[in-house]
Design a protein around this nucleic acid. Structure first.
Lengths: 139, 139, 139, 139
DNA sequence: GTGGTCTAGACCACG
DNA sequence: GTGGTCTAGACCACG
């Protein structure tokens, strides 16, 4: 598991780890039930404190993305966390509205925004497929 | 200029002000060249610390959204902030990727995500038209 | 806010703080919008590390019980967190089943268990009323 | 003896074993004097570490639920563990209070809580009867 | 002055 | 060896 952390970013390191693990899970690069590197490994490889790595895993567990078992390690959860549908929709619409404002401020026409989303989804699905193929081959 | 601030939000108040001013500019409710209320006015009306309002304007100026002229006030910039196109695209793609990961984590199919974006854009444009009509009438 | 912490307990200190704050909120001794003592105050009065107190508040925020605002303090949330009803029911039934087994193992007949629950609810409501009266008087 | 263990649960496996054995005893599926499977059998059937199974039995013996006789095996205790009545009541009231706070935090009215407990007790007793009938038949 | 992040380092619980 | 808790102490962001 390769993490790309920027200590100079305003985003806290532990949240950078959270975001990247979520992305790997969304891509299928990390699959349900799969074991993540240990807290100590993440800390050593990414040169952060063990507590910082542990905190990222703790947040991921709070979000239902992973499950930690003492003495065993940390694993990708088997099923997506359940969420109140209204809360889910609210969260998503909020994210969409922020995106729209961001695009307008950058001078991107909204029609183009839709096209770009379609394109990024395409890129995402392609990468997910690649990850998936890589996984199959390892079997 | 009406701001809807939520002191209970995890987003810092000065950033909420920044986001909302950007939104008003994006909507056309604040037009290029238009004068913004003074820092004191914002602070008084929104009941925030004067430093908080000042900080928000500082950030907006740094982003090229507004321009302060000593002794005259703060004005919406005449032209959209010129951003290195590569930087602009990078920022937008980053935002899109975060959105995609969020949607996947929430269990929202990516096809639905596209539809929802289209719907939110529709809502945004409707509101922008209303704001615009209001402006015309004031002339 | 008085906390009764036992460092010798198998329950981690930060979780003891979490449980007690939740109890005070449930009782109405801490009301929506009310400000909690600062992290530093809790740490000093309870003689725990500042990080430990901060962690408790962080967990409470994750549970939607309180809201923290940098520079302002920590406040009881205005409304109860929304939860998927199925998840809510599942959590409650699990708690009830554990209670039943515990009672049987202790040799408590299940009919008595019901009576005891009724009695504890009575005691809880009485204490809640007292807290409420105390609050009114302070106004 | 069939155990339903969830390695993904935050509850340690040895405690899951403890809880389930207690549950089986409470249900009457395991009767006073009855012999439990050996530590090795439990470990093999449930695919847990032998130390884990041994630890669970150790805890059960400490609680007075089972009794180990060297060279003979482990047996369900003849009589319910004698607990200082004050300690028993304290333990039960603590559990009830935690339940009440949890219900309040979830927004469950306390009157409903009483009804739900009655319902779960009904379900528990029905299952206990079934277990009991099964035992009779085996004789 | 408030909460948030991070490090260094210790000790503990579980398997 | 794994994750979890806690302390001590530093520095930062927000208001």
């Amino acid at each position: 598991m390769k993490l790309d952390l920027d200590p100079a970013s305003p985003v806290p390191i532990y949240l950078q780890i959270v975001e990247q693990v979520r992305r790997l899970v969304a891509l299928g690069a990390l699959r349900p039930g799969e074991r993540l590197p240990t807290v100590r490994e993440v800390a050593a490889r990414s040169r952060v404190n063990r507590n910082t790595a542990a905190r990222a895993y703790e947040v991921l567990e709070g979000q239902g993305i992973v499950r930690s078992r003492v003495g065993q390690g940390t694993f990708v959860s088997e099923d997506a966390p359940r969420l109140d549908p209204a809360a889910r929709d609210g969260a998503l619409d909020g994210a969409l509205d922020r995106l729209i404002v961001e695009a307008r401020s950058l001078g991107v026409p909204l029609a183009e925004l839709e096209k770009r989303l379609a394109r990024r989804i395409g890129a995402f699905e392609k990468e997910a497929k690649k990850e998936s193929a890589g996984k199959e081959q390892k079997r």
